[in-house]
Design a protein around this nucleic acid. Structure first.
Lengths: 340, 340
DNA sequence: CGGTTTTCCCGAAACGTTTCGGAAAACATA
DNA sequence: TATGTTTTCCGAAACGTTTCGGGAAAACCG
């Protein structure tokens, strides 16, 4: 492998000047810079990431740490995350790598070790918990990171998030405006922070609309078809008054809900109205539902670029203000809601 | 982060001796070694991978490079690979990282760059082509690697593979022995090396059994349910004589074949016999088919350990002989084959 | 023409580790 | 006592890069 020394020797320059030329420093002659870059390309030079990291603290590698879990093979969304972030960081000349933890392994020691060996410049955190220990840990360790979502009261770290509170409010308020009063909410796994935040929006909308908050209508779980189906059947099988509308945390849940309602002999939107939030996962189009599904839409794939932006910025030491970004969503009314 | 210097100062030793103690070299007093290791643990020391790599050429990181493709989210098998290899290398104190290439990106420059930056000690190669340029490239570059499968005539590299030729022979021969003569083979994507090798086993079995080789009965494609279904319908819809039995490259294909045969009003095994090779992917049990499926079985998950063994060995410079391993498979007869 | 600035360059140090070549001390051998 | 041998240790060099502090030459200014 060609090194700076090789290039320097070939051009009769100092190693210093070659390095400065390649890194576009100011005090190098334009003509020299071009000559250096040309020979570097010709000699197929790639800077040794270890050497660079050792002295400058930058290796150009960032990582994502994820737990391994039983049905990871089935998880469609996960590969989207990896593919999206890979592409984004590649485009910035950085390397994105995935590190998978053992199933019940504690995350903190894993980060500890990765930080200790000092190979990575920063981390992307996904699925933050309500009070996520990883955030405190990385902050204390002084490592750059960006969170997909937000967690905790004091938010003094880079993040990209969408307005989950308002989005849940909008979906619920839309149903209230159409005359619904008993509105169920199929939410995600309880300790995720976005789940808590969406719950707040749901409750605020109910209060604002003068509707009663009925705890048995608010359900938590993995947001897939199976849970949509079983939760729907559960909602309509007890003694408690049944909902007239259902808010779904994502479109997979909604698909399960449609199946469940069909199994129960209930029609959408005649008997029950359904709305959902749409992450626009591939092969899952809310517009192709029958009847087509009313949603708030904010494509998950729109988040990779801001996330990469924020992390790259954090590594370069940009001020916090520029590293906190909120994505937008749109409300798309279709045919899954009826007036009551 | 604690460094060797910190430990050396704390114990009033030289950096050299601390390093040697931690790496279990011979010329360090047993008592010193213990003291060093204890304080290292206490100070939460992790060797800086960059510094280590720079001088010794080892960072303890190995990687897998995969192309990104459209339906990667649907690919159940892929996450199994990542999870399995991650676990294996973690257990050896090594880091396994995944690097995803852009969709149509050429693999060689990606390896070129990864080798140039010199962060990784070696690579795992999966899905080798019949003559795979990556193998030549990595060999020329002098980097350690291990191949899941084999490719080319001269096999002078570490690999783990199963006897794909014999396995296809066994499946086909089993059908021939039961009296079948027109046997279809739903194989994988044409340029994969295991696909070619399985074809050879299939043809050898046909020849040995005195059955004619009918090209229209040998189909190639992605090995999923959809192709199993469409290929089955294609096999039974032309003018050419229909097969009485089908060999499937994996169990997903077989599932599609079952669906296709049902759609055509044909029964298994009454009208058509079906056999397959079973990688034992999760949530896809050949024994739960109706009728239960006769297979050759060799669980994919059994390959991660030998693969990791071989790569770790190659990095340590072990001789080639010990780095070439063949996995076994078993023949499991069930209820999907009838005598003719 | 003396002084100041600008332009372009370089040597040397530093990052944290491994490893080479010794070297002091303790011990055994002749 | 002199001579090897083993045990245990250490200084210094090296890996390839970035960066600090300076410095020579040219250009500019009054």
């Amino acid at each position: 492998m060609a090194t700076l020394k090789d290039i320097a020797r070939a051009l009769d320059l100092s190693i210093t000047q070659v390095s400065r030329a390649l890194n576009d420093h100011s005090d190098v002659n334009e003509e020299t810079r071009l000559r250096v870059k040309a020979t570097a390309r010709a000699m197929n030079y790639h800077p040794n990431a270890s050497a660079r990291k050792l002295v400058s603290g930058r290796s150009g590698m960032v990582g994502l740490v994820v737990p391994q879990y039983r049905n990871i093979g089935q998880d469609r969304i996960f590969m989207e995350v990896v593919a999206g972030l890979s592409t984004q960081f590649s485009g910035r000349g950085m390397q994105f790598v995935l590190h998978m933890m053992a199933e019940q392994e504690n995350a903190l020691p894993v980060y500890q070790k990765l930080i200790g060996t000092a190979m990575l410049d920063g981390f992307v955190l996904i699925d933050p918990m309500e009070r996520d220990p990883r955030i405190d840990f990385l902050r204390k360790a002084g490592v750059s990171f960006v969170v997909h979502g937000r967690s905790g009261k004091v938010i003094d770290y880079p993040y990209f998030d969408i307005e989950n509170e308002q989005l849940a409010y909008d979906l619920t308020a839309h149903l209230i405006q159409r005359g619904h009063r008993r509105i169920a909410f199929l939410n995600g796994i309880a300790d995720r922070s976005y789940v808590t935040v969406r719950e707040q929006g749901y409750i605020r909308a109910l209060r604002d609309g003068g509707a009663e908050v009925l705890p048995h209508l608010h359900l938590h779980g993995v947001m897939d078809e199976a849970h949509g189906l079983t939760d729907t059947i559960r909602l309509f099988s007890g003694d408690a008054p049944c909902p007239t509308a259902i808010v779904c945390g994502n479109v997979r849940l909604a698909r399960g809900v449609y199946q469940g309602l069909e199994a129960l002999g209930l029609s959408v939107p005649g008997d029950v109205s359904v709305v959902a939030h749409d992450d626009e996962l591939p092969a899952l189009r809310a517009s192709a539902f029958f009847p087509s599904l009313t949603v708030t839409k904010s494509p998950l794939r729109d988040s990779w670029e801001p996330l990469a932006d924020c992390l790259a910025g954090a590594i370069e030491g940009k001020p916090l203000g520029t590293l906190q970004r909120l994505g937008s969503y749109s409300f798309i009314e279709r045919n899954s809601v009826a007036n009551l």
